[in-house]
Design a binder for these strands. Structure first.
Lengths: 98, 98
DNA sequence: CTCAATAAATAGGGAGTCTACATATAGACA
DNA sequence: TGTCTATATGTAGACTCCCTATTTATTGAG
């Protein structure tokens, strides 16, 4: 989750609702993350210093827009690397060729 | 975990300790799963009918050897497929090309 | 004027992983 | 003989995290 959230706000800051939609679109519908997962996770990442949240108002609706910090950018790089070695490890076990 | 455990006993039945070693070897040391994870998971998979456990004695040591059932083989196929689509989905979000 | 979409958030449940600990035997080595 | 390492299984409790369900509120369509 952390990697997904950090990755989706990498290019441009987004608010929670938009993040959920972006996740769904980028994954072609495969990733449909509930609000009960995303909102607490965003706060967690903000507490960790990886995201910086800021309130904004657009069309009468309040939004909390999250921006990737430098620290978050470093964390994302780590997450990507960890994800890669993780899938490699799992793959080497799951792959029926062995 | 379920997929890993089912996969490792696919070719031949193994007992818990050997499963942990096999996981470590197959993943080149990347997967070092603690006993507190493996033993409960094996019992869970046995309760689910995916593994069949049987006690044996080898060199004075008691071993519970687990064999993949037909149901477990089907579950493993499902896990492999799920893992594949899961990594594809995550990859499509994590991949910086988008 | 009601419903769908937009927007955020939390409480509580549940599942699973990990740390630590407990138990026990076999074999190596001093 | 005694100790240590490897082999072998297991549980209790903490911890984290994800999900379901619910609440609140606004905008715009029908």
């Amino acid at each position: 989750m952390d990697a997904l959230l950090l990755s989706v706000v990498e290019r441009e800051p987004l608010h929670g609702y938009a993040i959920i939609e972006a996740l769904r679109e980028r994954s072609d519908g495969a990733l449909d993350v509930p609000t009960g997962t995303v909102y607490p996770a965003l706060r967690r990442l903000e507490r960790a210093g990886y995201l910086a949240g800021e309130w904004a108002v657009a069309g009468g609706r309040k939004r909390r827009t999250y921006r990737l910090t430098d620290s978050g950018r470093a964390a994302l790089a780590g997450e990507r690397s960890a994800w890669k070695s993780f899938t490699t490890a799992i793959g080497s076990v799951l792959d029926p060729s062995r």
